[in-house]
Design a protein around this nucleic acid. Structure first.
Length: 495
RNA sequence: GCCCCCAUCGUCUAGGGGACUAGGACGUGGCCCUUUCAAGGCCAAGACAGGGGUUCGAAUCCCCUUGGGGGCACCA
């Protein structure tokens, strides 16, 4: 196995938007492939026609692309093992099933769902593990079941050995052994002619020459079945790696009730793909004892499956938020500006600027604003409220209450006086830059003998509309003389 | 009920017999910087689940207990 070139696959089932756990697996798959110069295959496991959701494919491709996980073979990419949809490979599975039956490793089962249900309920009530009783293993049982089934098509079951132990080698967990008596005769072929995962996976992994299977730990209990199937089919078992689950804050497996569960949700909330990649890549894997921010190239260079962890990890959103802030600050100004513009130009309801701000937004102007806001923002949409005043054409339409702020809530007369002084001061500033502005207003503070913070807060609110804003004089420089004076004059008139 | 996996600060983790008075990060608290809010800097609190072994020596190896997670479908 180690001599063959590495081939890994992501094999999701298109039943909804892909889960964060799936995407983390994709990251590990991709990393292993890129690190070793191998091939990353995408295969769609669409063998359950009842659960198939057509839109799921698009959100899968979108998720992978958003994270920058390109696949070498698969849908839209093609490849020597096409088609990459299991629903289009039914002949392969049928042939494999026939081969297993002929070799005595599998048998047709005519038991009805009703009988199986009743059987399992009885077993559960008797505190027994649910288990197929093997009626159709024998000629006689099969004949009996066939009568009950009417014209219903049979399923094909694997004839699992009743004795002995199956040992599965997991690259992370070592040898895991299972008593064969506890293992069920799994269904390989459904009565609708579609294979189950258990059959399709070995057939495809063999045909596609997959060398490493990275999958969630929920598969570990069926790993012995898979090993037996690979053996029965005469295939080499790939290296198996069962990754631990991602847990919600309550330590149960992450799911919809924990909120966002798709990377697309994070994209829409204003997270950066590199940050999400970095964060997910570090959930269950680490480079060393201190590195938190890792570039994609470093990930690829250093990734190794033996630094994978086997214990489940709680999804720590606060840390993701922090990391996203780091990535925002790491990003070149122009790129961040472009990204922000994309966001700000949306309709207000979708997280964009108020309609009063004229579009399109000026890229050069935005690039000057970015250094002022970048360290105040963890998520992209947070920039909206912080940046709006730069783009609004004229007055902010604030009432006296807002303008007076906390410090002058009980003394509007004083606020009005300060605003008119500020207006006069602003009118005298030349040139209009932050140094001159600061000097002028500092002088005003001294002349009026007011608290500097109090005066600046008034001006901040008048100019930006909010008590929390980027640095005042840099902001005023960018907003420009005309609009600043207009907003100050407006403030005076509101009292 | 049965089977399997896992177990270091609240969380993500480093650690793979002596380098551990257990390191880093997020978060939390404090201080500094400061025109607001951040960012940044410094400091602090905070963990080897418990019990047995093995060993001169155990966070590291073994066993048991406990706790958590997962699985037991004509779903993947």
């Amino acid at each position: 196995m180690p001599d063959r070139p590495v081939r890994v696959r992501l094999a999701p089932s298109p039943t909804g938007t892909p889960h964060l756990g799936t995407m983390r697996q994709a990251i590990f798959d991709w990393l292993l492939a890129r690190h070793s110069g191998g091939t990353f295959v995408l295969r769609i496991e669409d063998t359950d026609r009842n659960r198939f959701v057509p839109e799921a494919l698009d959100s899968l491709y979108e998720s992978l692309r958003w994270l920058g996980l390109d696949w070498d073979e698969g849908p839209e990419a093609g490849g020597p093992h096409a088609p990459y949809f299991q629903s289009q490979r039914l002949d392969l599975y049928a042939a494999a099933a026939k081969r297993l039956i002929d070799a005595g490793h599998a048998y047709e089962c005519y038991c009805t769902p009703e009988r199986l249900d009743a059987m399992r309920n009885a077993q559960r009530e008797a505190k027994q593990p649910p288990h197929y009783d093997g009626r159709c293993r024998t000629e006689a049982g099969r004949a009996e079941a066939k009568l009950e089934a009417g014209d219903r098509s049979p399923v094909v079951r694997f004839d699992m050995p009743d004795e002995g132990v199956t040992v599965v080698a997991d690259a992370l967990r070592g040898d895991v052994s299972f008593e064969n008596v506890r293992l069920d005769d799994a269904v390989l072929m459904k009565s609708d002619g579609f294979p189950t995962y258990h059959l399709a996976m070995p057939v495809d992994d063999h045909e596609m020459q997959i060398t490493h299977v990275i999958r969630g730990e929920e598969w570990l209990p069926s790993a012995p079945l898979h090993k037996c199937l690979f053996d029965a089919l005469g295939y080499d078992l790939p290296v198996l790696i069962h990754t631990p689950s991602i847990l919600g804050p309550d330590k149960s497996k992450l799911s919809k009730r924990h909120g966002a569960q798709s990377v697309l949700d994070y994209r829409d909330a204003g997270y950066l793909p590199d940050a999400v990649f970095n964060f997910l890549g570090l959930l269950g894997w680490s480079l060393d004892d201190k590195t938190e921010i890792i570039s994609r190239d470093e990930f690829v260079e250093h990734f190794s499956t033996d630094r994978l962890l086997k214990s489940p990890a709680v999804f720590n959103k606060e840390k993701l938020d922090w990391m996203n802030g780091e990535y925002i600050r790491l990003m070149p100004v122009e790129r961040l500006a472009a990204l922000l513009i994309e966001w700000l130009e949306r309709p207000e309801a979708d997280g964009g600027l108020p309609a009063a701000a004229p579009r399109p937004l000026d890229a050069a102007y935005t690039a000057r604003i970015v250094p002022l806001v970048r360290e105040r923002v963890k998520l992209l949409p947070e920039a909206r409220d912080m940046m709006a005043f730069f783009y609004l054409p004229d007055g902010l339409d604030l009432d006296a209450e807002t303008l007076a702020g906390k410090a002058f809530a009980g003394d509007h007369d004083k606020a009005r006086l300060l605003f008119s002084e500020a207006l006069v001061t602003a009118e005298g500033v030349d040139p209009w830059n932050h140094e001159a502005l600061e000097a002028a207003f500092q002088a005003l503070v001294e002349r009026l003998e007011v608290k500097r913070g109090d005066l600046y807060m008034l001006i901040r609110i008048a100019i930006s509309g909010r008590p929390v804003a980027p640095p005042l004089f840099d902001s005023m420089e960018l907003v420009g003389r005309e609009r600043c004076i207009e907003r100050l004059r407006d403030a005076v008139n509101r009292f």
